[in-house]
Design a protein around this nucleic acid. Structure first.
Length: 594
RNA sequence: GUGCCUGUAGCUCAGCUGGAUAGAGCGUCUGACUACGGAUCAGAAGGUCGGAGGUUCGAAUCCUUCCAGGCACACCA
């Protein structure tokens, strides 16, 4: 028995099509071309099936004949009007209002708004955010953090098991320099008032000295070695640095409303690395080369698809993944392999998702391929959910005027203060605390939505005006749409109208259109998860707000007669819940008033 | 040089598992304020989908090639 989603017209129609195709030989046709799709144009109805065309090619028949044949065996009478055969052989479906009313009435009595869990739920580990210790979080971290969090929320909503792991950069050669600085130049007062700033100052200071003085470089290296061998004093400094950094992360994550299940930093895997390299050597996955240990091509893939080959001057040459440097230290490829090993052992996930910058694509291709060579029997899948860069007005990666990375805390503070200015300008009646709270939800929501509403593959231009706009595809517009719905209920209440879950009965065209859009919530969530593209859900919510605006214009609610009024109140309540739930899946808050 | 990503309206972006007339927002122009939130809504103008070939009944979408921009290219993460 196929999985049927009650409120999902698309999946129900698909089901009917599949049944009608039973017995038809479509082996020569790609299955995805036989899918029901949303109509490309409202004049063609709500959904369309174009499968007759590819099928006709494979079976050497006329498309319209196939469409007619399918139509003859098709029973969609519960869902849609009898479809028409249009154009070359398209089947166009118009959803019946009776089906829609049923679906909406079920949705309003369902905590999940009619969105069913995934057919097969799985276990996922999602790796995102990954800030570095002793450094301020900056713009470079927002996309990973925000997109990663949204993906996690979406997966969980669909019933999947998810472990979130923040792979913090808390190890590496930079620590030697911080320790050198900590011992010689620590300013306790500074550390107390601005710990991150002080730690960053120490690193920069020593880094600068090391450039001109080789002995400083050597000192840093020996401090690193001491730390790694468990020197008590250095370990204490390192722990202090880590704790102070974690306080910063916690503050920012609290502001963003993001939580992690675990935060196993790079240091967690450190003890495992030497043996891991030996194991890969012993198993023949890696070999020695020029004093280092590295993984080379196994020659099984096409050169251009082989992550361990690179073309240089017309020649395909080795591009190995170094897992032990000449000086004996491991690299981040080694750590990433150890991380995958640990995740497999600890959680046995179906898929590990890395939400990381597109620039690291080459690295991840190597790590994933190396892991497969190491443990070929494992079926764990890997996804690198990559994303582009945030650009400034000049079209170059966003920086401050002095060329520094924009600090995340400062960016979020500015978002809130800009939001506060807008809130107080539009409505000065709020007390301080209320205004601050609205500004927080609006400012943070704007930053998140700006990131999520864009196709993650592309770079995007950072614009305060665009993200804080009360019109267009921006968070404040959607938050306002929510408050406008809620204000209907305030109005109703003030007029003593009783609210109840009345049966929804759709009359006006814009009322039906709103209902249809609500019924597509489930489709939007699925679309957002296909390639991990939250912008699909953003587009849906924006269209929902638009549908509501049309309804709001055409259909009086509180002034209507009791029966129509109650139905419309129920439709409004459902709209609000979908907006709130949908924005919630993006990690964005809604407000009763703003 | 090789690989990956990107090129769609004046600007910012959707659409890219091929489907019937390419969509939004901003900006421009024109309307709707005795208002269930005008922090809003409606309408108009605006495109040889970077160029050229090809596959197909059908291409913004797939293939080839060229042009432009970004990124990455062993012992930093």
């Amino acid at each position: 028995m196929r999985f049927i989603q009650k409120m999902n017209a698309k999946s129900q129609l698909q089901n009917a099509i599949d049944a009608a195709l039973h017995g038809v030989d479509f082996s020569g046709v790609a299955p995805e071309t036989l899918q029901v799709a949303k109509a490309t144009n409202p004049q063609f109805g709500d959904y369309q099936w174009n499968g007759a065309l590819p099928l006709a090619k494979a079976l050497k028949m006329k498309p319209r004949d196939i469409a007619a044949d399918v139509l003859g065996r098709l029973d969609v009478s519960d869902i849609a009007e009898m479809p028409e055969i249009a154009g070359a052989g398209f089947l166009n479906f118009r959803i019946k209002t009776s089906w829609l009313e049923n679906a909406l009435n079920e949705a309003q009595n369902d905590a999940r708004l009619g969105v069913e869990s995934a057919r097969e739920t799985g276990k996922f580990v999602v790796d995102f955010s990954s800030p570095n210790v002793a450094k301020p979080m900056h713009v470079g971290h927002i996309r990973s953090t925000i997109i990663g969090d949204a993906i996690v929320r979406l997966l969980r909503f669909k019933g999947h098991q998810v472990v979130t792991d923040n792979h913090i950069g808390d190890w590496g050669t930079a620590f030697g320099k911080i320790i050198v600085g900590w011992k010689s130049d620590l300013d306790e007062k500074n550390l107390a008032s601005d710990p991150i700033g002080e730690m960053e100052r120490l690193y920069k200071l020593i880094n600068e000295r090391a450039k001109s003085d080789a002995s400083v470089e050597d000192l840093a290296r020996s401090e690193t070695a001491l730390l790694q061998s468990g020197d008590e004093e250095n370990l204490k400094i390192w722990e202090r640095v880590r704790d102070l950094s974690q306080e910063q992360f916690d503050r920012i994550y609290a502001l963003l409303g993001i939580e992690f299940d675990v935060a196993l930093g790079e240091s967690f895997y450190n003890p495992r690395l030497p043996a891991l390299v030996d194991e890969l050597l012993a198993e023949g996955v890696a070999r020695e080369s020029e004093g280092a240990v590295a993984i080379f091509s196994d020659g099984k893939a096409e050169p251009k698809d082989d992550p361990f080959l690179i073309n240089r001057d017309g020649q395909w040459t080795d591009f190995p993944a170094i897992i032990r440097k000449r000086d004996g230290a491991a690299t981040y490829a080694t750590t990433d392999l150890a991380t995958l090993e640990h995740r497999l052992k600890e959680w046995a996930p179906d898929e590990v998702i890395y939400v990381v910058d597109a620039r690291q694509q080459g690295h991840f291709r190597q790590v994933f391929a190396a892991f497969k060579r190491w443990k070929p029997e494992e079926e764990m899948r890997f996804s690198h959910v990559s994303f582009g860069t945030i650009l400034g007005d000049d079209g170059k990666p966003l920086k401050t005027r002095s060329g520094e990375n924009v600090k995340l805390q400062e960016l979020l503070d500015e978002a809130q203060s800009r939001a506060l200015a807008i809130v107080t300008e539009k409505n000065s009646a709020y007390d301080d605390q209320t205004a601050q709270n609205i500004a927080r939800a609006v400012g943070i929501g704007a930053v998140k939505y700006a990131d999520l509403s864009q196709n993650r593959a592309t770079d995007y231009l950072f614009s305060w005006d665009k993200m804080l706009a009360t019109q267009g595809n921006a968070a404040p517009y959607l938050q306002i749409a929510y408050t406008r719905v809620r204000s209907i209920f305030r109005k109703a209440q003030s007029e003593g109208i009783e609210m109840e879950n009345a049966p929804i009965h759709l009359i006006e065209p814009s009322e039906i259109a709103l209902g249809k859009q609500i019924s597509r919530f489930s489709e939007a969530i699925d679309a957002a998860l296909v390639d991990y593209r939250p912008n699909a859900l953003c587009d849906y919510l924006y269209e929902l707000a638009g549908s509501f605006a049309a309804f709001y214009r055409d259909c009086p609610v509180t002034q209507a007669g009791a029966e129509v009024r109650n139905s419309r109140l129920a439709l409004c309540a459902l709209t609000a819940r979908v907006l709130q739930t949908g924005l919630g899946l993006l990690g964005i808050e809604t407000l009763e008033q703003m």
